[in-house]
Design a protein around this nucleic acid. Structure first.
Lengths: 382, 382
DNA sequence: TTCAATTAGTTCACGTTATAGACTAAATAT
DNA sequence: ATATTTAGTCTATAACGTGAACTAATTGAA
């Protein structure tokens, strides 16, 4: 349901507009902002003034345009007011990062550890320590919030199931006691946002997160598409071949049984992802064949996803990122074979450009974007 | 990109809000509207006054509440101001309907004819005659626009490909000369909207349109989801079995090769859908088995779609509507077998409650909703 | 029957916000 | 030096929603 518009929401909306344009298009004069937003110069002046006072923007001095007329004074996003915390629990590590409003990394740390079949309280306690170190680096910045990335379906502060960690129904947002609001999201969703904001993700694309399970983050018009219940993107259980191997979900021939981490390692006869990469680098035939087969299965699942959702770009992240050279071409071939006639073009498949930090950065970025979209609450103080 | 908010857009927004609530929740007093929208009584009075003046609303006299206090005067949507035209070109018929703002059908006609491998200009000429009959029934109503439903991918007034009609790259919106703005949309999309507005479609569901091809309309939060290029919903080419029969799209084992109209008729050894229904009613073993097999394939494709998009409700339309008793149970079984463990619940599969008129009604409904969402342009006149 | 209580709807002074255009400021071109 | 051009500010104004006072119409109790 939509809300009534009053003067204050009108103002909030226009503040967001000015702040958003400045964030998106770098240094901008008031005149340029007026042109871009369609607001008048006077209105822009007033809004920019308020954002300067609040510490969200700073002036960078007069432009040296070399053109006729009075040079404008450019304003840019200021990193000195608000920060955001990004957290991630992965199978092999805990990660934390602190970003300011300009998306500059103020602090980042990764703690390598094995979280397989772990105790949620213990792991989150360890993460809390990391988070406090990051908060210490915030100094005088207001930390607007923290977002935690976990793989597997989540909702309303609860991890329903994280197969790689062995967690079920963990109230992670509550367990992680922090002096800032904590929220929770799926690692694939946050990875997708990370790729959009910090990598090469276009406005519409499908981000695939290959881990023990295979998740997907759907980005539509630069925003996450979450589906009716918030559980969209279960790419791992898309049907690849109805008569295929049995999956832990109870079905058969799901993508996960072909390209999930466990299936990959078993097919390549190696114990770890690191060993798999070594084998591939050494041109091991079994490993290479295993990856090509997995790539084909991935291509089939992506074909179905593209048919339903009409994506032109697909980014492979998680372990599929480093494995891309061996997995990507096969998947791309399947996509080309099955989609070129119908669509006229073939979706572009590419590895993540952000790499392993996509989800952590995306997590922090979510808060950054929340603040940029609604600076009101932070406007009074300074 | 979002737009700046000025006084006029604030007003437009609140007008939409008042009009929308009245449309959604039936007769409402000004006091109730104030409560619902969060606007003050004075604002609501002013907005309702304008909508009454413009002929969008009418007062239905004082309420007989029986409670203490002055009884309120209820207002309802008025059908006497604006109408909308819905058009459809199907393989077996042309259809037209005229709806007023209250979604009351003012005129509807269906012209049975065989449009297989037809000449676009000829067919659209015939449709134009029908449309003019409908426009004649509009009398003093302003017809705000016409929307034409065609099966297959469309975009910007052009039918890219309608396999059932044999059309390719037809500029249908231009060919159909009408005295009102004409736009074009996919039959599956409009069927989905028809089911949402005139049938039992919930706020989030997948509408499947079974015809020669199999399309899907994705409804998310009561709005269509069109994908990056507007071509979302190609359910017919979702992978059911990678080694299956060759499809006209160049791939193999697409859903269409199992459950497309041609595949169905061939498997059941009947020449037409009518004959298929007769055979099924007569408990013909071949036909029954063919439908069960198609249902399983449909179930597999829907499994993939649900995994990616997280739908809880699926509505089967087009020829799948009448075929539901023979096709639905098998599909539902596959969905249950493959999704229950992972999701905890199984998506509900149901036949369309609107039937064959879903797309035509959806087409007219699109214009109705466009006007309700932006009554401004029609406010001055009366 | 009368009057208090209650709810609906209108009116109007007011506050907030964006606008338009005049005005000042600072550069380049002639 | 002066005209021209562009940036930014200032002020009066208009649009719109708000809030409180006010009128209207009903029920219920004395």
């Amino acid at each position: 349901m939509t809300q009534a518009v009053r003067h204050d929401s009108m103002r909030a909306r226009n503040l967001e507009l000015v702040l958003g344009e400045t964030a998106r298009r770098g240094p901008l004069t008031r005149a340029a902002l007026a042109e871009l937003t369609g607001l008048t110069k006077s209105t822009v002046s007033k809004l920019v003034g308020d954002l300067l006072d609040a510490g969200f923007l700073t002036e960078t001095g007069p432009t040296r345009a070399g053109e006729r007329g009075r040079p404008g004074v450019e304003v840019v996003l200021s990193g000195g007011r608000v920060a955001a915390l990004g957290l991630e629990v992965n199978v092999d590590y805990l990660a934390v990062c602190l970003l300011d409003l300009t998306s500059t990394v103020r602090f980042a740390e990764r703690h390598e550890c094995d979280n397989r079949a772990s105790d949620p309280a213990e792991v989150l306690g360890e993460l809390q320590k990391l988070a406090h170190r990051a908060l210490g680096e915030a100094h005088d910045l207001t930390v607007a919030g923290a977002v935690l990335a976990v793989s597997g379906p989540v909702g309303d502060g609860v991890v329903f199931s994280a197969p790689n960690l062995g967690w079920r129904d963990v109230r992670a947002a509550d367990l992680l006691r922090l002096p800032v609001p904590v929220s929770l999201d799926n690692e694939a969703n946050l990875g997708a946002l990370g790729e959009r904001w910090f990598g090469a993700g276009p406005a519409d694309f499908l981000f695939v997160s290959g881990e023990v399970g295979i998740g997907a983050g759907l980005v539509v018009d630069s925003a996450l598409f979450r589906g009716a219940r918030g559980l969209a993107g279960e790419l791992g259980h898309v049907v690849v071949s109805p008569t295929g191997p049995r999956c832990r979900c109870g079905a058969t021939g799901c993508l996960e049984t072909y390209a999930g981490q466990e299936a990959l390692l078993a097919a390549a006869s190696v114990p770890t992802v690191a060993a798999l990469l070594t084998a591939l680098d050494a041109r091991d035939a079994t490993a290479t064949a295993a990856l090509a087969a997995a790539g084909e299965a991935l291509g089939l699942a992506l074909t179905s996803a593209v048919n339903v959702l009409d994506f032109d770009h697909i980014v492979l992240g998680g372990i599929f990122g480093p494995l891309f050279p061996w997995l990507g071409p096969a998947a791309q071939r399947v996509l080309a074979a099955r989609l070129s006639r119908l669509r006229g073009s073939v979706p572009v498949l590419a590895p993540s450009t952000v790499g392993g930090d996509a989800a952590t950065l995306g997590a922090a970025g979510r808060t950054i974007h929340r603040v940029l979209a609604n600076p009101g609450p932070y406007l009074g103080r300074i």
